[in-house]
Design a protein around this nucleic acid. Structure first.
Lengths: 221, 221
DNA sequence: TCAGTAATGTACGAACCAGTACGTTAGCTA
DNA sequence: TAGCTAACGTACTGGTTCGTACATTACTGA
């Protein structure tokens, strides 16, 4: 019989604040996205980590702050993706389509992000309100849209009288809903909006919709 | 001092199963919408009712079944509204716009419904799956869209190659997102999507978007 | 009118869960 | 190498919360 007291491997447990913090954030993201804020269990997060619950309180202070940190990181990811976007060499129509597809792809690839945002809305965005970081964090996408829109309207190509924020809402709504409401929509209408086989179909549909709206012939007024 | 034992008004408490059941459903709807499934408190629902927690278990069996009953009623409301819709006398463009506006108006008037659906999606629509009623309950809106779409495509007015379910998803996404993501969108972009002053603006934007998509000139392929 | 049942109320328990008091150790630095 | 502190672990608690055992009363039909 080996001694129970004997540690499995001495020295394996190396202290690394950054790694521990990051690991907690990873696990917490999955747990909050899985079960919602109130459904998520701090003990469960701790159990799936190589550390203990004590560390969650040590690094983050509490469940609320942990959720806020999770949100901050999740929003940081999409902000980074938007910053990578370079559409200055494209004509307005292609540029808008490219931007819409970026949102489409990001939302599809990050269903946990969508769930976290849904959860935050159920809580009236109070964690965003409590976060300094999320307050200052602007939206690169909005700047891009503003530039494209100005060019398109200038040239007369875009006839719609719409501003960047509303256009962003239009694009986001389609991309977001497709992921966020996947389950109820699927259960009620028998169609999986996120089925891989329909991906290109919806991606094209989004672009067509936005371009059609922006370039539609309008009655003079 | 009046006796504590003395009931305030004898005979005031009249037994009425239907009323008690309905009252529980009303209060539960508000509580679940407010706090989410796990955040909602059965004791809180009971406290806001003229009856006791015991009755919730008597009539519904448990928290899960109560939430399912709440969902069933909420979906019933929009189904009824859709059934009222009569667009057979309108041309396809006007008919689609009318239908879109019905969804827009319903979602705006029933933010609790939107929250409940968001919550149900966080729980992977497992309550809908458990409900016989919600399974059979079709969608009158879908039938209406099918008819309008057939007429529009027949006449060559609608050029888009889209089916009823996808068009319904497009309309719903805009209407749903505007209410469901009101808080995060407002906090991040500084614009209240549900502000009364912008109501007509978004209502028109939705119609323009859908009509533009359906009637856009398309490259022959 | 009386017995049976549907409807209701009270009080409680067992499990759960966020948070913490207290103790320990690794690694850096003087 | 001694000692200091950041990093970490254990064990517990106090309050909460879903659910129920048990008692009671209003209504109804025979």
């Amino acid at each position: 019989m080996t001694s129970v007291e004997e540690p499995a491997r001495p020295g394996e447990r190396i202290r690394d604040a950054a790694r521990t913090r990051a690991e907690i954030l990873d696990v917490a993201t999955a747990e909050f996205a899985r079960a919602g804020y109130d459904g998520a269990r701090v003990d469960e997060i701790a159990a799936r980590t190589r550390t203990t619950k004590r560390m969650i309180y040590y690094y983050f202070g509490g469940k609320e702050q942990l959720f806020t940190a999770v949100l901050e990181r999740a929003y940081g990811v999409i902000r980074e993706a938007e910053q990578q976007l370079d559409v200055d060499h494209l004509d307005p129509v292609a540029a808008i389509r490219r931007l819409a597809e970026l949102t489409f792809d990001h939302h599809e690839r990050h269903p946990d992000f969508i769930r976290l945002v849904s959860i935050e809305n159920i809580h009236d965005a109070e964690h965003i309100a409590a976060s300094e970081e999320l307050g200052r964090m602007g939206s690169p996408a909005l700047d891009v849209i503003r530039r494209i829109l100005a060019a398109g309207q200038e040239s007369g190509l875009f006839t719609a009288d719409v501003d960047a924020v509303d256009l962003h809402a239009m694009i986001s709504s389609f991309c977001f809903f497709r992921v966020s409401n996947r389950h109820t929509f699927g259960a009620l209408f028998g169609r999986d909006l996120v089925a891989p086989g329909r991906r290109e179909h919806y991606r094209a549909m989004l672009g067509d919709m936005v371009i059609a709206y922006l370039t539609a012939e309008r009655a003079a007024d």
